[in-house]
Design a protein around this nucleic acid. Structure first.
Lengths: 339, 339
DNA sequence: CGAGGGAGTGTAAGCGCTTGCAGTATGCTG
DNA sequence: CAGCATACTGCAAGCGCTTACACTCCCTCG
C-alpha cells in the first residue's frame, strides 16, 4: 500500500501539504495541489480510512439502522440513502436490528460505540426508551425517518394528512362505506405511524359527516398476505359490504386487490382500493395510492445527516413534522361509486 | 470517550494487558483478565475501531457489494450476511452498485481501497473484467455468491441441476408442452445464471425425449411484471398452448400465475407453474418452487469470508460448483396433467 | 512606509491502539 | 538440580495520517 510519504516525495512537498491538497482543508497553492494530485493518481494513492479517522476524528462513514432488510419500503429507503451518501464520498455501515433483545443490545452498546461512524440514520425504527438514550449518548448527529421520536431529529411525512388525502379521494368518488386496513392499536406503544393513518382516515370521515363503524376496520401486519386476509374478512362479512377499502400500505392494498378478485368482486367496478407508499408493484396492479417517495426519503435523510455534520452548532433535536412530500397517484383501482 | 489508559489504570495493569485481555490475543492470567473486564465494563469502554485498525491492520469490517438493494433476493441474502457477521462482532459496510459507470468506478478505485474492510462479499454481481481485477488487486479475501467468476472464490448452486429438478417435476406430472420464462441469451455476457437454468431445462426435456420448441420460450426481466407479460405471450399464442410454465425466478412465476388467472386459466387445473428461489410470497401464492435458501446463502458467504480471514494461507480462488443446497417445494401451483 | 493580515508551507506532536521484545516467574524434563 | 520452555507482564515503538504552530512571503491599508 502506498503511503502519504511516497506521494509527498513524488510531488516534492511535505506530507502536510499532501494531506491538505487531497482533503481540501487549509490553503494549498494551485501548483502544489496539481502536483500532489498528479502524484497521488499515478501512484494510485488512496488515504487509509483508519489512519485518517484516528488523526482527524472524522470517519466519513454513516451508520444506518434498519429494522427489516427484506421489506420493500426499508430497502428502498436504504437504497436512497446509499446512493446519496456515496455521491458525497461517504461509506455506509449497516446495522440490521432484529427482534432479538441481545443482538439489539450489542448494537447499541458495542457496535455503535466503536467510533466507526460520524452519524446515524435510523429508518422507521421502533426504539425503546433505553435504546433512544443510548443513541443520544453517542453524541453524534442522528436522523430518524418516520416514527416521531421526541429525542431525535426526525423526518416524517404528515401521516394524518396522507391518510386523509387517501380517504378524501374515495369520498370524492362518492364512496360512503369505506373500510380501513391498518395496524391494531396495541401496536402503537412505540410506533405511531399506523395509528396516525387511522386517525386521518377517521377525521376525513367525520368531516364528511360519516360515522366510523368498527366493523369497517380490520387490522393486518403490513404484508400482502395480511392485507389479503383482512380484505377477505371485510368483504365476506354478511351485511352491507364496503364499497371501498383504504389500506395503510400498498402491500396490504395489493393483498386486498387479490382477495377481491378471488371473491369475485371486480376492481374498481365493485370495489375501490387505495393504498399508501408508492410501491414498485403499484403500477403493475394499477393501484391508486398516496406515494410517499421512499427513495427520496432516504436521500433527504442522507442530506440531513451531512448537513448536521457540517454545521457544528448545537445539536438540538428538531422535529419538523410533515416535512416530507407525498402525492396522490390515481391509477385504476379506484372509481366513482355506481349510482 | 474513555480510552484504554483509563481502563489500564482502573484495573491496575498496563495498556498492553488490557489490549490482550479484551482481544483474546496473547496470554493473560485469569485474574488480570477478570480485573480488566470488570474495569472496562464499569467504565463503559469500547475499543476505538480506527485506532485498533491502524495499529493492527484488522478492521473487523466486511464490505458487501450488491447490485440491487430493493430486490427481494438480494436483500434477503444481505440479511443473511448481516446477521451472521454481526454474531461474530463484524460490521458490514454496504456498497450498492448501480449501473452508472462512474459510480462503479469510484467504488472499485476509491471506496474499497480505503483499507476500511478486511474482506469483500459480492452478491450475484455481473462484474466487468477490469472490476474483477481491481477486486483481486485489493489483496483481500473475496467471496462471490452466484455468477461463477473464475478469478474469485465463488459460492454457487448448481443452476443446471436446479432447473433440471424443476423441469423433471413437471415431466413427472405428465406435462409435455412445457414453456420456459428466462433471460435472453444476450444477457449472458457476464451473467450466466439464467442461461444455466435454461440449459437445465433443455437437458431435462432432451432426456425425456421431448423436442425443445423455440415457441415455448419467452424472455423476461426477473420481475413479476416481466413474468406476467411473458406468460401472456406464451398462453395467448394461437396453437396448442403449454400445459406448464417453468419460470427462472419466483417473481416471474408469480407474474405467470396472475397472467393465467387473468386469461381465465385455472392453476393448477389448466396450467401448472413452477419457479425458482423460495420467495417469501411463494407460500401465499401456493407456488411450487425450487428453494435455494437465499438467507442461508448469505450466512454461508459470511462464514466463508471469516474462514478465509482466519486461515492466512494462500488465497487461491476456489470454485466449488454446486455446493449450495436447493430443494423442491411442492405447493399448489403444479398438478398432474389431466388425462 | 510600517503595521497588519492572509496565503502557503513545513515541522512535529499526537490520535488510541497493538505487538515485538525483554524480563521475570513458574513448571517441566532429563 | 541445571536447563529450558512457557506463562505472564510491561515498555515503547510504531500504525499512517491530521493539524496546531511557527515561519516566510507578499499584499493592502492608513
Amino acid at each position: 500500500m502506498v503511503s502519504i510519504d511516497e506521494v509527498a516525495r513524488a510531488a516534492g512537498v511535505s506530507t502536510a501539504t499532501v494531506s491538505r491538497a487531497l482533503s481540501g482543508r487549509g490553503h494549498v497553492s494551485a501548483g502544489a495541489k496539481a502536483k500532489v494530485e498528479e502524484a497521488a493518481k499515478s501512484l494510485g494513492y488512496v488515504v487509509s480510512a483508519s489512519a485518517s479517522s484516528l488523526a482527524s476524528g472524522r470517519t466519513r462513514n454513516i451508520g444506518v439502522l434498519v429494522p427489516f432488510l427484506d421489506r420493500w419500503f426499508f430497502s428502498t429507503v436504504l437504497s436512497g440513502i446509499a446512493s446519496a451518501l456515496m455521491r458525497r464520498g461517504y461509506d455506509i455501515t449497516l446495522y440490521s436490528l432484529t427482534a432479538d433483545r441481545g443482538e439489539r443490545h450489542d448494537i447499541f452498546d458495542t457496535f455503535l460505540r466503536r467510533q466507526r461512524v460520524d452519524g446515524v440514520i435510523a429508518i422507521s425504527l421502533e426504539l425503546g426508551q433505553e435504546e433512544t438514550e443510548r443513541l443520544v449518548e453517542l453524541d453524534l448527529p442522528v436522523i430518524a425517518i418516520g416514527g416521531p421520536n421526541p429525542l431525535l431529529t426526525t423526518l416524517t411525512v404528515d401521516d394524518v394528512a396522507v391518510a386523509r388525502l387517501a380517504t378524501e379521494h374515495l369520498l370524492a368518488l362518492g364512496h360512503r362505506r369505506i373500510a380501513h386496513i391498518g395496524a391494531s392499536p396495541e401496536f402503537d406503544i412505540d410506533f405511531h405511524i399506523p395509528t396516525q393513518r387511522r386517525q386521518g382516515f377517521e377525521l376525513a370521515l367525520a368531516d364528511a359527516g360519516i360515522e366510523v363503524s368498527p366493523s369497517l376496520f380490520e387490522p393486518a401486519d403490513f404484508t400482502i398476505e395480511g392485507g389479503f386476509r383482512a380484505a377477505k374478512q371485510l368483504l365476506g362479512k354478511p351485511g352491507s359490504r364496503p364499497t371501498a377499502i383504504f389500506a395503510a400500505s400498498d402491500e396490504m392494498a395489493i393483498g386486498a386487490l387479490l382477495a377481491a378478485r378471488e371473491l369475485g368482486y371486480r376492481v374498481p367496478e365493485d370495489l375501490s382500493v387505495i393504498g399508501i407508499d408508492g410501491h414498485e408493484l403499484g403500477e403493475f396492479f394499477r393501484l391508486t395510492t398516496v406515494d410517499q417517495f421512499p427513495l427520496g426519503q432516504g436521500e433527504r435523510a442522507a442530506d440531513a445527516i451531512l448537513e448536521a455534520l457540517e454545521s457544528t452548532d448545537a445539536e438540538t433535536p428538531v422535529h419538523r413534522p410533515g416535512e416530507l412530500p407525498f402525492e396522490l397517484i390515481v391509477r385504476g383501482s379506484t372509481a366513482r361509486l355506481p349510482q
